[in-house]
Amino acid sequence: MKTLVIAAHPNMETSVINKRWIEELQQYPEKYTVHELYNVYPDGHIDVQQEQHLIESHDHLVLQFPFYWFSSPPLLKKWLDEVFTYGWAYGSEGDKLQQRKVALAVSAGIKEIDYTEGGKYRYTLAQLLSPFETTMLYCDADYRSFFAFYGAEHEPMASEVEQSTQGYLNFIDNL
């Protein structure tokens, strides 16, 4: 079972969490394909057929991104809008995501306590990510939830980064 990781970070070179996760995933090319949208499409012009073929050639799909203004970075949203087409991802003949295991990997700059009903932002990360879950359910994918790193903007310790990296690989391996 091979997993396609769609990584969407507009500033990967300055990232701590997403960059480290990708470095680790790339150590296992037999298990994971890392596809960095901002590297592949710096002009924002997405090759829809190529992207669909890439998804079809993998067993599982993970969308990895920093939680960006309480959503995804804009290129990932554009990718979803253009790649998940009627007749391919959904609709009477759209079955390419049907029962495909799909998950999210999210780095959140804010601390986990702020993503609670009593916290600063009044919503859990699961609630804020519900549009992604609903999209996958609409496409009849097997949505497997998300893996998150909280507090990325607070200069995490190296041990926290490494712990999250191992947790992330474990999460993907157990989809």
Results as ranks from 00 to 15, higher is better:
K2N: 14
I6A: 00
H9E: 05
P10Y: 01
N11Q: 09
V16W: 03
V16G: 05
V16F: 07
I17Q: 10
N18W: 07
R20L: 08
I22W: 00
E23Q: 12
E24V: 09
L25F: 08
Q26R: 15
Q27S: 08
Q27I: 06
K31Y: 04
Y32H: 00
T33S: 07
T33P: 03
H35L: 05
H35F: 13
E36C: 02
E36M: 04
L37F: 07
V40W: 01
V40P: 01
D43C: 00
D43A: 02
D43E: 08
H45T: 04
H45Q: 09
I46R: 00
I46N: 01
Q49E: 09
Q50P: 02
Q52L: 02
H53S: 09
E56I: 03
S57H: 11
S57N: 14
H58D: 07
H58A: 08
D59A: 11
H60C: 12
L61W: 09
L61C: 08
V62N: 03
V62D: 05
V62G: 07
P66T: 01
F67L: 11
Y68Q: 13
Y68E: 11
W69S: 11
S71C: 13
P73A: 01
L80I: 04
D81N: 00
V83L: 00
T85A: 14
T85Y: 01
Y86C: 06
G87A: 00
W88P: 02
W88M: 02
A89K: 02
G91M: 06
G91R: 03
G91D: 05
G94Y: 03
D95A: 00
K96Q: 10
Q98C: 11
V102D: 12
A103D: 05
V106F: 12
S107V: 10
A108N: 14
G109V: 10
G109L: 08
I110T: 14
I110L: 15
E112I: 12
Y115D: 13
Y115K: 15
E117M: 13
E117A: 13
G118K: 15
G119E: 14
K120F: 15
Y123N: 10
Y123S: 09
Y123I: 02
L125T: 13
Q127C: 13
Q127P: 13
Q127K: 15
L129V: 04
S130Q: 10
S130C: 06
T134M: 03
T135K: 00
M136V: 00
D140Q: 06
A141T: 03
D142K: 00
R144F: 04
R144H: 03
S145L: 09
F147M: 04
G151K: 07
H154Y: 15
E155N: 15
A158H: 10
S159H: 08
E162F: 12
E162M: 15
E162I: 13
Q163D: 12
S164H: 15
Q166L: 15
Q166M: 14
G167A: 15
G167E: 15
Y168C: 04
N170V: 12
F171E: 11
I172Y: 04
I172W: 05
I172M: 10
L175T: 04
L175V: 02
L175Q: 07
